[in-house]
């Protein structure tokens, strides 16, 4: 049962990723990205990390994909452009990508990954919360500062500078 479900999620993820880079229509690329994110959430479910699956969907599909779709839909020029998919350097690009792929493949196959024998005890949420406010409290606060900085930067970049009021 489980290999079958894993296969389905793999098709979703990899197919979505393949669709993102090969389709000419930018809007379809965003939809394929959503498909890929949903497949990733499926992986988290298989690994008994339900919370992370929900976080993936809430943050990636619910917020970031919506943001990407807004950006695509609001720019007319992007939508009407229809360039060919490959340019003249596709041979060199293929060689580089192939070398990179084999290097990436060699790393996970040759590392002895330490497997933990722990079984999820069912209260991983409580442990996550305890960890957030216990040993990892500094990164927790730094995350909020990171979000603040990101928001300030985004507002400064995206602000309508035609009528800036000084309050």
């Amino acid at each position: 049962m489980e290999p079958f479900v894993f296969f389905i999620f793999s098709i979703l993820t990899l197919g979505g990723a393949l669709g993102v880079v090969t389709t000419k229509n930018l809007y379809y690329a965003a939809l394929f990205l959503i498909m890929s994110f949903s497949g990733m959430a499926g992986y988290f479910v298989l690994l008994d990390a339900g919370f992370l699956a929900a976080v993936q969907i809430v943050v990636y599909v619910g917020a970031i994909a919506v943001l990407i779709l807004f950006a695509i839909m609001l720019s007319r020029k992007v939508m009407t452009r229809n360039e060919p998919l490959l340019n003249r350097q596709w041979g060199l690009g293929l060689a580089t990508a192939a070398i990179f792929f084999f290097v990436m493949l060699a790393v996970p196959l040759n590392v002895k990954w330490p497997l933990s024998n722990e079984v999820s005890s069912g209260n991983e949420l409580v442990q996550l919360g305890l960890a957030f406010l216990g040993s990892y409290v500094i990164p927790f606060e730094v995350v909020s500062i990171l979000l603040l900085v990101a928001l300030i930067g985004a507002i400064i970049l995206a602000r309508d500078t035609s009528d800036v009021e000084v309050e």
Binding site: F51, V55, V58, V59, G62, A63, I64, V66, L67, F70, A71, L74, L125, V126, Q127, L128, G129, L130, F132, L133, F140, V143, S144, L147, A150, L151, A154, I155, A158, R159, D160
Partner: peptide, 26 residues
């Protein structure tokens, strides 16, 4: 721009909510 800014602020608050959930449970 306003459409986009609302979605942007939403992303920030969404991530904040994601961090608050484990705190609420524990």
């Amino acid at each position: 721009v306003s459409y986009y800014i609302y979605a942007l602020i939403f992303v920030v608050f969404d991530v904040e909510a994601v961090f608050l959930f484990p705190w609420a449970v524990a």
